[in-house]
Design a protein around this nucleic acid. Sequence first.
DNA 1: TATGAATGAGCGTTCATTCAT
DNA 2: GATGAATGAACGCTCATTCAT
Lengths: 188, 188, 188, 188
Amino acid sequence: MPIQKVTKNEIIAKALNVFSNKGYHNTSMSDLAAEVGLLKGSFYHYFISKEELMVQILESIDYELKSNVYPLAFHKQYPASKRMKLFLKGLSKVVIHKNGGCILGNTILETANLYPSFRHLLTTIMDGIVQSFANIYLELYSQEQSQILAQQTLMELEGAIMFSKLYSNPSIFQDFQKRMIQRVETDS
Amino acid sequence: MPIQKVTKNEIIAKALNVFSNKGYHNTSMSDLAAEVGLLKGSFYHYFISKEELMVQILESIDYELKSNVYPLAFHKQYPASKRMKLFLKGLSKVVIHKNGGCILGNTILETANLYPSFRHLLTTIMDGIVQSFANIYLELYSQEQSQILAQQTLMELEGAIMFSKLYSNPSIFQDFQKRMIQRVETDS
Amino acid sequence: MPIQKVTKNEIIAKALNVFSNKGYHNTSMSDLAAEVGLLKGSFYHYFISKEELMVQILESIDYELKSNVYPLAFHKQYPASKRMKLFLKGLSKVVIHKNGGCILGNTILETANLYPSFRHLLTTIMDGIVQSFANIYLELYSQEQSQILAQQTLMELEGAIMFSKLYSNPSIFQDFQKRMIQRVETDS
Amino acid sequence: MPIQKVTKNEIIAKALNVFSNKGYHNTSMSDLAAEVGLLKGSFYHYFISKEELMVQILESIDYELKSNVYPLAFHKQYPASKRMKLFLKGLSKVVIHKNGGCILGNTILETANLYPSFRHLLTTIMDGIVQSFANIYLELYSQEQSQILAQQTLMELEGAIMFSKLYSNPSIFQDFQKRMIQRVETDS
DNA sequence: TATGAATGAGCGTTCATTCAT
DNA sequence: GATGAATGAACGCTCATTCAT
């Protein structure tokens, strides 16, 4: 076998970081290649285009969430507050990158109108997150209320990350998390 | 005397629209010039750079909000719900563009880490909006609670616009507005 | 007015030469720019793409032939042999370039199946040349025979240029010309 | 022992087809590898370069013509017209590919000035074809006249193929064939 | 003020080729 | 013999910007 400097997954992980920090259009293939330690041209052995790379990043996020994060919201034995805490932690790990904000929010605002291939994946992921939140709320609220609360939660989450980024102040997002956990605490 | 084809304000208004729809990095000076009806070279008589143009756009937004929108939230005779309604309407007019979302949110996510000149203006504007919301909430809540609610409101607003854009569904943002108005309704 | 290093027509003339010598695909925009004394990027002020440049080259050939060459074949007072001689000379001047062969033949073989925009122009030009030959033959042959002979003549012309190029021997094409002139000589 | 996925001859046959359709410069090694079912890297076990591949294609054409096609023109018992018919048929089979035209004409126009290694082979082949035509004409014409007619025939053949390609009309080439056969028919 | 030619760097992508495995 | 990762140069083209006119 030939020398393998990197794996596809390593590229996806590193590219995700660069995109998070610089945005889709402001990230060049050179930036990505440099981050990975390849030449620009070599990048195309792994991904046929910049667009396809982003698609695969989003797919890997979708997979990661389905495998490891959504289940946290559906855990049978934990109370809502614990599930909320674990879910937010897991979600943050996959989707939020220091200083760069949330890859989902970033990508939605920058590209949703331009790349249908992105939009479809992004809606799938956002739907999945909302349903997970909704399941947590179901412990305390009606079906309908849970749905609404879940959507609001994700909206506020994206807003909170935006604020954190603008003010370079991570505690804004941490406060948001605490608020969400408290909301589902039943201190009987 | 030479012909003046456009005014600086006209350029700012049109450029704001283009940036809202295409994003900062994905908008070229050619795009802007074409929209305004100037040639690329002529553009530089009005704005020395793309960055400076965006700065002036943000400044004009700041000015517009201070002049015409924040006062709506401080109106002495109107009840909170009416002020909320008027304020949201005024804010949307200045800051939200059809399909393109909110220029503030877009610009924060795309550029806050890259252009300090943008960041300062954006914080000023976001602070102003939060304080306006807070003033509305003050009719019903404590100082501290109003502050928190105001920040949450703006977060959720940005999230709601993001959702509207992703799902191409303006009613998500309209529902958000209704929710905010109801929150401060005191139907005694 | 800004400094003008070159005119569009100069570019067309020089690009025609380069394309004739190197072929369409083997000619890079850098090659063309260098020939003209511009940077690659500057080229795009004159032609929006390589394809469009070739289109305009073909259009200028069509125009040149219509203006100055076809009329030679329709000259009322000259005998067929003189018209043939003048027409071949005029045609060669526009369409054949030393060592590079015939831009029409080259472009047909290399691109006719790839660029519909080229094909349409090429057929127009080839039709015009055939009709001119046919008009010369009409002095001695029937309508129908003239048509056939005209087409054969252009075929042989392209073949003769191909041979000249392959053997680096211009006299092959010159012999062809003599043969064509003799064919319409009426030595009464 | 390692698997041999293809033979050199198979590659040559398939590459000939691709080059015929797309031209030399517009055909990439990836195109060729894909057509053959090999990966790009594997290709270089068979041919050290794109140029060398084309050389071997031309050599194989030369060989094929010498083995199976030229003899048709020298057949002792057949009359000129039958030899012409068989020879044209045999020649077409080796050298002409549907839609793509004649590999010889294509390659001459595109590369004769660029690759001396091609030029030598191409002249050898063209000479061989001319001599075969000449031999057919010898039945009816003088040595000298046969030579001239033979060269003219090949020129017109290449021109006829060019026209067929430009107008996407194979009957132009078929008409040419009929004309050549009739020319040597002696209907006594 | 407006023009548009020119720049030089950079874009995303493809090229022919190499070579350790 | 076959692989496919890697190269480095080049591709066609666009970028933000400059400036003589």
